[in-house]
Simulated assay, not measured.
Amino acid sequence: IITCAPTYATIGIWAPILLTFARMAQGLSLGGEFGTAATYLTEIAPPDKRGFWSSFQYVTLIAGQLLALGLLVTLQFFFLTEAQLEVWGWRLAFATGAILAISVFWLRRGIDETPDFVEESDRGRRKGGLMTLLRERPKQVALVFGLSIGSNVSFYAFTTYMQKYLVGSAGFAKDKASLICSAALIFYIVIQPMLGALSDKAGRKPLLYWCWIGGIVGTVPLFTALGRADGMVEAFLLLCVAYLIISGSSATSAVVKAELFPPHIRALGVGLPYAVSQAIFGGTAESVALGFKSAGMESAFFWYVTGCMGVALVTTLFLPETRWQTARPAR
């Protein structure tokens, strides 16, 4: 729909309405997919390697961003001018995504269900709905929501918004900003499994504390330094530091949430509070940043991100350490 959507000049007000509809469909898809993906990775993993296996959820999320940036860089350097990208070239990324979506739909039809799902089905136990979730695990729902505030905002601030920040505030050309972000995202991908494996040894909460405390202390200085960066190497290294900090959350995000719930409400328990947090905080992070910038208070966004990570830190204080469950989470 986004690939083929007519412009405002062609169909008037129906253009933004159509685009909003398509974006809402994407948001609903992401919200539902996160919970099921986190659940699936956690349930198929050996009990002592759940952190390592589930860390690949963010590997794929970051790889998706890297693929998009790679396509942008390729178009910028080899095929299209800046004017062509702005007029019609941007549609190529959405066309690529549409093709990949069909491929993924075909792939997932052939994967096996997890042992937990099969066991629940064999026992004749139906999956729980919203009321079951809120009745049985209200505290866990609140914990996932609180954690997601910090993880969603920090992730979008340092990934999706970062390219715009490097161009609009640090003064880098668009093609150079794309290269910086692409290189840093490769680093971000590589360290996810390492920290996921570390959480299998040290526990989930130490990595979360590293993320939130590091983020509270480092977000404002890192954004400030990135805005004043003199060269591409300096900006790359600063961004890698930011990614090393927020990886304490992203590498453990799936497993931390999934281990809080029993199988019959696990996917819903992970996905629902995450999706609500995503809609309220994650999806609006870029708009908040641009709003502060247009108001002449750009640094206020840095403190906004810091505050969201502070909420997640407080949430982590009430989070049980689930790593030491040697068997699958209790039903």
Rank of each mutant, 00 (worst) to 15 (best):
G12R: 10
W14L: 14
P16Q: 06
A37Q: 05
L41E: 06
L41A: 12
E43H: 04
E43Y: 09
I44Y: 11
R50W: 06
A63E: 04
A68V: 14
V73H: 12
F79V: 15
A98N: 03
L100C: 13
A101W: 04
R108D: 10
D112V: 06
E120T: 15
G124L: 09
G128T: 06
P138L: 02
A142V: 12
A142N: 01
T159W: 05
M162A: 06
Y165Q: 10
V167F: 00
A170T: 12
F172M: 03
K176I: 14
K176P: 00
L179T: 14
V190G: 03
P193I: 10
S199R: 03
R204K: 11
Y209W: 14
C211M: 15
I213R: 06
R228I: 01
D230T: 13
D230G: 04
G231C: 11
A242P: 05
Y243D: 01
A254E: 02
V255N: 01
K257E: 08
F261W: 03
P262M: 03
R266I: 09
G269K: 03
V270Q: 02
V270I: 13
G271N: 08
G291L: 07
S294R: 11
S294L: 10
T306A: 12
A312I: 07
L317N: 00
T322K: 00
R323L: 01
P329E: 00
